[in-house]
Simulated scan of single mutants.
Amino acid sequence: MQVQPYLFFDGRCDEAIAFYREVLGAEVTMLMRFRESPDPPPPGTLPPGFEEKVMHANLSFGDTQVMVSDGPCTGQPGFQGFALTASLSDVGEVERVFGALAEGGQVQMPLEKTFWSPRFGMLTDRFGVSWMVMAMPEE
């Protein structure tokens, strides 16, 4: 069994994909736009211009897969009750990733040393996705 997050970006998926590619080195392993669907949606179910939006995409972050989409478009994007965790081996890389994810977002807990990690911090990025960024403990 695999459990994978599926994030809906309410029309900003292309922007989110570009951001995560730049900041986290995400690799797009699959991307399909609504216009490419073999089964077109019933008339009137997509907002005008949504044909070019991302119907489904897979992002690879190392061994982790995250699925993303623009829809369903509700006008109220929100990611509540969970956080994605980026665990990195290098403190310098933790600082770079945390700073980049925080740009345009909101820091809940600045990076600091904790009893479980040399650097740990929490933030919500510009898309509303909550992140915990940490350096793996030294052994």
Rank of each mutant, 00 (worst) to 15 (best):
A16W: 03
I17R: 09
Y20I: 04
R21F: 02
E22A: 15
E22V: 04
E22T: 10
G25L: 07
E27T: 14
T29G: 07
M30A: 08
M30T: 05
L31E: 13
M32S: 12
F34R: 00
R35T: 10
P38A: 07
P40R: 06
P41H: 03
P42H: 07
P43M: 10
P43A: 05
G44A: 02
T45C: 07
T45F: 03
P48Y: 12
P48L: 02
P48V: 11
P48R: 02
F50I: 00
E51A: 12
E52H: 13
K53E: 04
V54W: 12
M55W: 11
M55E: 11
H56I: 11
H56M: 15
N58T: 09
F61A: 08
G62I: 05
D63S: 14
Q65M: 00
M67Y: 12
M67I: 02
S69Y: 03
S69D: 00
D70K: 01
G71Y: 00
C73M: 03
G75W: 05
Q76V: 05
P77W: 05
Q80K: 11
Q80W: 05
G81T: 14
G81L: 13
F82N: 05
L84H: 02
T85Y: 09
A86F: 04
L88E: 05
S89D: 11
V91C: 13
V91E: 15
G92L: 11
E93P: 07
E93Q: 15
V97T: 05
G99H: 01
G99C: 03
G99M: 08
A100K: 11
L101C: 12
E103N: 10
G104H: 00
G105F: 10
V107M: 12
W116F: 15
F120N: 12
F120T: 03
G121Q: 03
L123M: 12
T124H: 00
T124E: 15
D125A: 01
R126D: 01
R126V: 00
F127Q: 13
G128V: 02
S130A: 15
S130K: 15
M132P: 10
M132Y: 03
M132N: 13
A135D: 01
M136W: 06
P137H: 00
